[in-house]
Design a protein around this nucleic acid. Structure first.
Lengths: 230, 230
DNA sequence: ATAATAGTGTCTGTGAGACATTATGTA
DNA sequence: TACATAATGTCTCACAGACACTATTAT
């Protein structure tokens, strides 16, 4: 590669909630050098040879062809670029935050989920600067979760208040009063973002839970006019 | 250029407030093809030949060497990439929002300020997709102005409440109650973001204005826990 | 004095925070 | 029955919105 070229890639930070309402990160085992066989973020190179119509299309290609999952939400986070992040030379990476359904199943031995916390606290290192990308994507998720309904995209379309509470707490990293969340969901209901199904979910113990339905609109999240306070 | 290459650039959406508290956009007359001699966003190409340490460094280089101004605030907005935005082929542009001081003076005949509104409403067209980049950057500014102190970076470090009101209204595109803004500034004062200078500004008519001092911290804006409502 | 503009005070409404209370299931 | 969990109600507080009122300058 001549020094005039730039290595441009799109990488995906795909998250899902596990049964314990903890966030997990999707990784792929790299098939090619550099860092061959290591677990890293799924991504693709973008250049004139690919017929991607746009960067977003390239992100969808990475999700479909590499991660082989379909996200409920996709958002561009940022772009990093410098001469040291890739051993091959000056490179830039535009990275996306993808939110997956909790029941997402992986197709292939080269894919796995790991605890997001392990990546964030450094106990699980990633090649390139992927650890930083993950941190920045999670920061975006947490920041938006303060005043939007973004965590609902980590749930199935039909969900309970308890599940929603787990999603918000995982994104925010702190406890949230369930009454606060109920108030917010109520406001979303009035504006048509959420509907009561009338059905109930019967857990092993305790009173049954109302099943709500989240009708997502064009990958956007509901914006509340106040923040969840510390 | 081979089809395997990607044209990567960094473009700057630099804004300032004029005397009438209206936003103006900094443009540069292009020295080279394509679109030679046309007014466009200042920007630079990034590739292995440049010794930029990072994308942000490239943005600073664009501001210093092309626009020849020093911003009070700089933030990456997003990255666009497709095969049609540049006649030379598949290209990507990472673009930044820069906020300038109101007394910014331009050095050179190839630089000018134009009314941001003219670009947003399409009455002033820009080459490439620069019009879209401007719209997206302004959207970011407006969105953040709802719940942060970002518009203060459009003012000199010493400012009056009236000037701040003008900045917020220009960013939000709507009227703001001055009592609301005073309350927010008061809260910033308590947390050390703003200090009362004790001095006063004497306008041609009316009661003199208190001069406040905005001590910016590391290019970040103060975050309020509520939104300015519609 | 009058005009013009800056700054303060008051009242209302909304929604988060905290916590108590009631409701509805299982064992 | 006891227990577990869900859902609702109540009270307080902070702050935006609206608007009245007071303060301080120039002419």
């Amino acid at each position: 590669m001549s020094t005039a070229e730039v290595l441009a890639s799109v990488d995906i930070v795909a998250l899902r909630l596990n049964e314990q309402a903890e966030l997990e990160l999707l990784l792929i085992r790299r098939a090619q050098a550099p860092f061959e066989q290591q677990w890293a973020l799924p991504g693709v190179l973008v250049n004139g040879r690919c017929q991607d119509l746009s960067l977003e299309a390239a992100a969808c290609r990475a999700l479909a062809s590499k991660a082989r999952v379909e996200p409920r939400y996709l958002e561009q986070v940022a772009t990093v670029g410098n001469g040291t992040r890739d051993p091959r030379g000056w490179s830039i990476s535009t990275f996306y935050l993808a939110l997956l359904q909790p029941d997402t199943v992986l197709q292939g031995e080269d894919l796995c989920f790991v605890a997001l916390s392990a990546v964030l606290d450094g106990s699980l290192g990633l090649p390139f600067d992927h650890g930083q990308l993950v941190a920045q994507a999670f920061e975006r998720l947490g920041g938006k979760s303060v005043y939007t309904s973004l965590p609902l995209y980590l749930l199935a379309p039909r969900f309970t208040v308890t599940e929603a509470l787990g999603a918000f707490q995982a994104c925010l990293g702190q406890a949230v009063q369930h009454t606060t969340l109920r108030g917010r969901l109520e406001r979303m209901k009035q504006q048509g973002w959420i509907a009561e199904t009338g059905e109930k979910n019967y857990p092993r113990m305790g009173r049954p839970q109302n099943l709500l339905e989240h009708q997502a609109r064009s990958d956007a999240a509901f914006i509340f006019d106040r923040s969840v306070l510390s």
